[in-house]
Design a protein around this nucleic acid. Structure first.
Length: 286
DNA sequence: GTCTTTACCTGTATGC
DNA sequence: TGCATACAGGTAAAGA
């Protein structure tokens, strides 16, 4: 499931490979993947051919493939099961391949069985995609700014962290991991976090994202990087996908609970729903 | 505006 | 073995 670390891993590689490459042709583009776009499929193909790739950027989980001589860009979102890889011209297509961009030296290919991903043509840098929240790895992201974002909100903190309009890039895996790091129960009302909790949460979000980027992302089923290799962060997860297994901190079995329609994994001992003012507080009854 | 629910979509796992 | 059903979840639209 591509979240910020996975998308960043792909971005980093594509930026090093694609920048400066001439776009020869677009052999395939499935119109069903073009959603909320300034150009339709045929127009995107026409606009790309003859251009040269510029830098590859990321905003939240959105990838932005820039062009050397145009402010416009090709935006790609990988959804749940999207794979964006570079391959040699003679490599066989994977099933569910929806986009092929042939450049000098290879092909950029997007495959996405579930088709939750998205391709769109966007104009000039800032005004693309939905209105996205703060970048959690930016210097502007702090306990103060996060507190302002969450102030007054009654929704569960887990749901707030998944809301891309508030913070951009967290998905189910890293929201759970960050809340565990911070010792915060996923169902705590978002606006109820105190200063210490906000500080721990900001540290947690940064820590789990950076660690995963170092490990080239988390691969459970679908995700691979732009070279087609799985990531290695799955072995470092503390709660996600560990229902029933012992908490790595205290040994209590990890629980799974649906919060805001999404499964949430947490340690009922380390992440209590009742108010606790600091880490390692004494036991509290629920 | 905030929050919840539902739709989209298909591979995989589970149950009968 | 085969079929039906449930489940996974990122985004966005609809509903409350």
């Amino acid at each position: 499931m591509p979240e910020l670390p996975e998308v960043e891993t792909i971005r980093s590689y594509l930026d090093s490979v694609l920048a400066g490459k001439a776009i020869m042709s677009v052999p395939h583009l499935d119109d069903r993947m073009v959603k909320r776009s300034l150009k339709n499929g045929a127009e995107i193909r026409a606009a790309l051919v003859g251009q040269t790739f510029g830098s590859v950027r990321r905003r939240g989980k959105f990838l932005l493939l820039g062009l050397a001589s145009s402010p416009d860009a090709l935006m790609i979102h990988l959804g749940m099961s999207g794979r964006l890889v570079t391959e040699s011209l003679d490599a066989p297509y994977r099933p569910h391949t929806h986009l092929v961009v042939r450049y000098s030296g290879g092909e950029l290919r997007l495959s996405d069985p579930r088709r939750f991903g998205r391709i769109a043509w966007v104009e000039s840098g800032g005004l693309w995609g939905p209105h996205l929240g703060m970048e959690p790895l930016s210097s502007a992201f702090s306990s103060k700014t996060l507190g302002e974002i969450l102030k007054g909100r009654k929704v569960a903190i887990k749901s707030a962290l998944l809301n891309q309009n508030l913070v951009a890039g967290l998905g189910n895996i890293y929201a759970d991991e960050a809340l565990f790091y911070a010792g915060i129960h996923p169902q705590r009302p978002a606006g109820s976090l105190d200063v210490d909790e906000l500080k721990r949460l900001v540290r947690g979000i940064r820590a789990v994202l950076r660690r995963s980027i170092e490990h080239r992302g988390t691969s459970f089923s679908d995700y691979v990087d732009a070279l087609g290799h799985p990531g290695e962060n799955q072995g470092y997860l503390k709660v996600y996908g560990r229902e029933g297994k012992a908490c790595r901190r205290c040994g209590t079995p990890i629980q799974r609970q649906v919060v805001g329609g999404r499964s949430s994994h947490y340690c009922p001992h380390c992440q209590r729903l009742t108010e606790t003012s600091s880490e390692g507080a004494h036991h509290a009854e629920i």
